[in-house]
Amino acid sequence: KYFGTAKARYDFCARDRSELSLKEGDIIKILNKKGQQGWWRGEIYGRVGWFPANYVEEDYS
């Protein structure tokens, strides 16, 4: 189950295995919004990890 999707506004390079690298334009499935302050958990291309919420724009459609 996921909470919708978000589109990456910027590139983000994961610093460890718990984080999710993003490329601008990627569409991420949002799995959890209750991580550390400002971090969401998501899935993209079969990978799961945490990413900074301010790097994405949530899709409300």
Rank of each mutant, 00 (worst) to 15 (best):
Y2I: 12
Y2F: 15
Y2E: 09
F3T: 13
F3P: 09
F3E: 10
F3W: 11
G4W: 11
G4H: 08
T5Q: 08
A6R: 01
A6V: 10
K7D: 02
K7C: 13
K7P: 00
K7G: 04
A8W: 00
A8T: 03
A8G: 00
A8F: 02
R9A: 08
R9D: 00
R9Y: 02
R9H: 05
R9L: 14
Y10C: 07
Y10L: 11
Y10V: 10
Y10E: 11
Y10H: 15
D11P: 08
D11L: 04
C13P: 10
C13V: 15
A14I: 01
A14T: 05
A14F: 02
A14G: 09
A14W: 04
A14K: 03
R15A: 06
D16T: 11
D16G: 12
D16E: 09
S18Q: 06
E19D: 04
L20Y: 04
L20P: 01
S21H: 09
S21W: 00
L22M: 11
L22C: 06
K23W: 02
E24F: 04
E24Y: 09
G25V: 00
G25K: 05
I27A: 07
I27M: 10
I28N: 01
I28S: 02
K29Y: 09
K29P: 06
K29M: 12
K29I: 07
L31R: 06
L31C: 06
N32Q: 14
N32G: 12
K34Q: 14
K34F: 07
G35Q: 08
G35K: 10
G35R: 08
G35F: 06
Q36D: 12
Q36W: 11
Q36Y: 09
Q37H: 14
Q37P: 14
G38I: 01
W39N: 03
W39L: 08
W39Y: 13
W40P: 01
R41L: 14
R41V: 07
G42S: 02
G42R: 06
I44E: 00
Y45C: 13
Y45R: 15
R47K: 13
R47F: 02
R47H: 09
R47C: 08
G49M: 01
G49C: 02
W50P: 03
W50H: 03
F51I: 03
F51A: 00
A53P: 09
N54H: 10
N54K: 12
N54D: 15
Y55E: 03
Y55P: 01
Y55D: 03
Y55R: 11
V56C: 06
E57C: 08
E58R: 07
E58P: 10
E58K: 02
D59G: 12
D59M: 13
D59W: 14
D59K: 15
D59C: 11
Y60F: 14
Y60T: 14
Y60C: 11
S61C: 15
S61W: 12
S61N: 05
